[in-house]
């Protein structure tokens, strides 16, 4: 494993090894144990597009392991504005650091960057494309919450058409033989280029009530206003896919809700205090998972 551009770059074995190491690193991620496994190592974080969770959790992961970060959170402060190409920028940064984390608004940017980087390149999100570390932390969370990540019935709700997290996660969950239920309005349904490649059982639904009581995991994504030309239509659709504690009375008591965050109104705040809410633990899990990945990529303690 040199670069991590897409979750499909990782074999099942590599995924399991990262998740196993992430579990061991939880006390370090929480600051209860010290580690120096990345002592002296430098991660360059290049954000050509804003991000909060991805950037902060990678910076925390690096620092908890004794490493440091350089980089930028906003391209306006870089030569990018002077017309520098991505490839030139990456070649330069790769000379300054032991690994490069890239977030970029255009699809395929991470693949192009990886072809021109001498050090491991991690895709932190390329436009509507891939975001493999999000998928790893989603898998880790499912495994932590359910004690397994095989043979589960996983529901995905909301914007399945444009949501990159649900595309990558579907592929990964299919590898581990889960059953997928896609719940969305027709206009935001899971694209066929995703479902065509799924090797597991899956079904599509318009209504959450149709499948809720069978689900082990409900993965909720935000329906974005900008996807709708008409505000009225947006309000109508968005309100039909709101999860609140009332609705959850029909769910299995072991059912867990995940969300890549930020959430707006799709999960009502009264769900936060129920046993179903796993999304804040999920956000924390980004730290140990990214620690494990960084260790494997830039040679810390195995």
């Amino acid at each position: 494993m040199k670069h991590v551009v897409s979750i499909s770059d990782l074999s099942k074995k590599q995924i399991l090894s990262i998740l196993k190491r992430a579990k061991e690193l939880v006390p370090v991620a929480k600051g209860k144990k010290k580690s120096k496994s990345l002592d002296g190592k430098i991660l360059a974080t290049c954000f050509f597009e804003p991000s909060t969770r991805t950037r902060l959790s990678f910076e925390t992961a690096m620092q908890r392991l004794g490493g440091t970060c350089i980089g930028f959170a906003d391209p306006s402060a870089t030569s990018h504005l002077k017309g520098e190409t991505l490839v030139d920028g990456i070649r330069m940064v790769a000379g300054y650091a032991d690994a490069v984390l890239l977030r970029h608004p255009q699809e395929g940017s991470a693949r192009l960057a990886s072809e021109n980087s001498e050090v491991p390149l991690i895709n932190g999100g390329d436009g509507a494309g891939q975001h493999p570390t999000q998928t790893l932390l989603d898998l880790f969370t499912i495994n932590e919450e359910m004690g397994k990540m095989e043979g589960l019935n996983v529901g995905m709700l909301g914007d399945l058409r444009y949501g990159r997290t649900v595309h990558s996660l579907s592929h990964a969950l299919a590898k581990f033989n889960n059953k997928l239920s896609f719940i969305s309005p027709d206009s935001l349904s899971m694209p066929s280029y995703v479902t065509d490649d799924l090797s597991c059982d899956w079904s599509s639904h318009n209504s959450i009530e149709d499948v809720l009581n069978d689900l082990d995991i409900l993965y909720v994504t935000r329906i974005q206003k900008e996807r709708f030309p008409d505000l009225e239509e947006y309000k109508k659709v968005a309100s039909a896919y709101i999860i609140d504690s009332d609705l959850l009375k029909n769910a299995k008591s072991s059912m867990r809700i995940l969300h890549p965050l930020p959430r707006v109104t799709e999960i009502s705040t009264d769900v936060d205090d129920t046993k179903h809410a796993a999304y804040f633990r999920q956000a924390f899990n980004g730290v140990p998972v990214r620690m494990a990945l960084l260790e494997q990529l830039i040679g810390g303690k195995k």
Partner: peptide, 15 residues
Amino acid sequence: ICSNDNCISNNERGA
């Protein structure tokens, strides 16, 4: 050429 306008291959000089 890629039909995705937002593909890096359509946006990066020299790609």
